[in-house]
Design a protein around this nucleic acid. Sequence first.
DNA 1: TAAGGCCATGTAACCGGTTACGATAAAGTT
DNA 2: AACTTTATCGTAACCGGTTACATGGCCTTA
Lengths: 347, 347
Amino acid sequence: MATLRDVAKEAGVSVASASRAINGHDNVTAATTAKVMAAVKKLSFVPHSGARSLTRRKTDTIGVILPDLFGEFFSEIVRGIDLVAHGSGMHLLLGNMHGSAHETASAIRAMRGRVDGLLVMPPDVEPELLSDNLDAAIPTVVLNYDATLLDLPYVAIDNYTGAYAVTRFLIERGARRVIHVAGPKHNRDARERQRGFADAMADHASERSPVILPGDFTEESGKEAARLLVAGKVPADAVFAANDVMAVGCISVLAEAGRSVPGDIAVAGFDDIPLARHVAPSLTTMQVKIDRLGSTAMTMLLRMLRGDALTASDATIFTPHLIARASTGGPVSERAGAVAAESENAG
Amino acid sequence: MATLRDVAKEAGVSVASASRAINGHDNVTAATTAKVMAAVKKLSFVPHSGARSLTRRKTDTIGVILPDLFGEFFSEIVRGIDLVAHGSGMHLLLGNMHGSAHETASAIRAMRGRVDGLLVMPPDVEPELLSDNLDAAIPTVVLNYDATLLDLPYVAIDNYTGAYAVTRFLIERGARRVIHVAGPKHNRDARERQRGFADAMADHASERSPVILPGDFTEESGKEAARLLVAGKVPADAVFAANDVMAVGCISVLAEAGRSVPGDIAVAGFDDIPLARHVAPSLTTMQVKIDRLGSTAMTMLLRMLRGDALTASDATIFTPHLIARASTGGPVSERAGAVAAESENAG
DNA sequence: TAAGGCCATGTAACCGGTTACGATAAAGTT
DNA sequence: AACTTTATCGTAACCGGTTACATGGCCTTA
């Protein structure tokens, strides 16, 4: 593997000239440049990015630390990030915290000296881990989590408002007994969605203690909840599942049991995963533009790398859209149910 | 940002001792180690991975170069890779060739000095780009492409056999006129699937020029093909779409037009994306364990990094399984249609 | 023709770690 | 007590680039 020294020797010039020629500085003769380039070609020299980033003090790489890599949600985030990063000639270094606190700490530490900036999506539990491990010296944008306490810029989804909207929608379409299939207890998104549900029930159905069935965002847990319904244990005419995957599980069990959706029970989810429009009946849900989460965060990070000092007050919060489909009786004629328009910046 | 020199000074020892203490070498006194560790903590020192990898001549990072990041296919591959990589303490550097030849070359070059090994999935067109840009010095495993010409180890899917199997299955279940919705012409997977289809038609339906409708792997192109069918332009009693996404498009148009699936027309796809089991009717397809593609490739790369010299003869080829679902009349009682068992290694 | 300026080039220091090698001191041997 | 062995430690070179500064050639200008 040829080094710059080899190239310089081959071209009969100094390493400094070789370096300058390769990087296109203007203080090199055309003749010298030609000699150097010939040597580069002959030795098929490729600059060693590691060594280069050591002196330049930049790596053209940003670190992306996610709690997991499972499912469409994360792949969409990464795609959104890549879209913007690639446009700026940046590379992506993937770190995976695999749920554990220890992994998270080491994932962040391992980024030192490898990246110019960090995009972090904290795990569900103990986000305070971040403050212990994040380095103030390296620009960081937080994904999907309100990082006001850390005073870091962040990009998040307004889960509360979304859940509130879909719950109200179910009530307005005539549901009297809406039950909620919750997500994992330790998951922040899930908690916010549950809170939005509870508040909407209190405000619009005068129901202060609505039924909340446990779930964990998996299809199986959605099925489990639906089995309770068909067993008649819980009277209900509508279900709001904390995510689409569980809603899909609900629908399949209800259908097998001969319950009509939405005739007997309306069902709604959250996320608008691609599957949602294809299941039968098609699923009413709150649409989250996941890739925009990633691309927006990356854009903010690029600004920070350019020197802008962003803080928590520069956060972007996306409010999800209601998508009314067949599982709640089909789309609404006018925009009766289309509650929240997407808003950027929450201030 | 503290450096090793700072730590050494703070601890009152030399940089060599500091380095040794931090890396847990055995030729350091417990007392020295304690002093160094105290300094590390006090200055919250984190070793600079870039500098470290320069001397160690390894980066603990492997580069992953994909043609795109869109959809479940790539996310599953990356997840499979990450699973194995993480187990060995490796990081993943993502490179995206975004379709273009120029991008591909620069993506590969940019990896020099950043990674210990490479996992490359060549773009559909001009895979010979690889030979020009790949570096013999850096261990490389090729994904989803027969790299025999490059004599590189690779992991691929037997698209031909899969397509042949599903086509034969349709014929054996009584279809007389099976039509194929093809993938993009420049796509190797698509071409192989089409070839498998054509051969199966010739062998089992004595049909030497079966109808092949154009498609490009998108849902819309699947719909377009189905529109031709409902318009009666093409007589058909079964459709084999080159991927699941197009098959799903077909089904939705057929359903809207009042055609019964599988009553009037049976439909089968390829890939077994998560969506496949959820659409109505559930979709018969060839199951490809995408994540295993990634994890297997990563495992091979790790072997190479350990010094094993793998070549094209060490390739792993996965043969997809037939999954018979409702869109072709439901599962088969015995294993009549379950043609191909998964086989590892093609030799 | 000598002094001054400009420009291309080379030398060497540096980025932040690791480690070969030699020095020093402590421990063991006879 | 004199000598060898062994363990710990420090100095300095090195990984492969970049770049501040010094050098020397050539062109101006008086």
